[in-house]
């Protein structure tokens, strides 16, 4: 049982770190600010979720787990608000996104 938990934690942490690094690479590979927001979104959502879930498995049903869960919930509540505020501010300031096909973006 403990071995299984350890294995699950390892898998989750590895997945979380991989997703985090993917997001970090994406922040450098994507061409403009608006697409970079999506890459940063990967690190804020599933990467953080995997890592915190992996830690929760180690802590068991304790106050520590509740705190980890709270951190996760808080991140998932605030990160979209931050991204939205960021893109909205960028859009208002007139930063133009690089679009592949010019659609109705007015």
């Amino acid at each position: 049982m403990a071995l299984l938990l350890d294995l699950l934690t390892t898998l989750l942490l590895a997945a979380g770190v991989f997703l985090g690094i993917s997001g970090g690479v994406g922040v450098h590979r994507f061409p403009d600010f608006y697409s970079r927001v999506h890459a940063a979104g990967v690190t804020d959502t599933l990467s953080a979720g995997c890592i915190l879930l992996g830690l929760m498995l180690q802590a068991g049903l304790t106050l520590i787990s509740m705190k980890l869960l709270f951190i996760l919930l808080f991140l998932w509540y605030t990160s979209p608000v931050a991204s939205h505020a960021l893109t909205r501010a960028a859009e208002h300031s007139g930063l133009k996104p690089v679009l592949s096909e010019p659609r109705d973006a007015s």
Partner: peptide, 24 residues
């Protein structure tokens, strides 16, 4: 709704008006 759009990577809600959402 707007937060759910933003929380799924790949889509970001930029501006929310009365019955429309500008999505990147």
């Amino acid at each position: 709704y707007a937060n759910s759009i933003t929380l799924t990577p790949g889509t970001v809600a930029i501006e929310v008006s009365d019955n429309e959402i500008l999505v990147h």
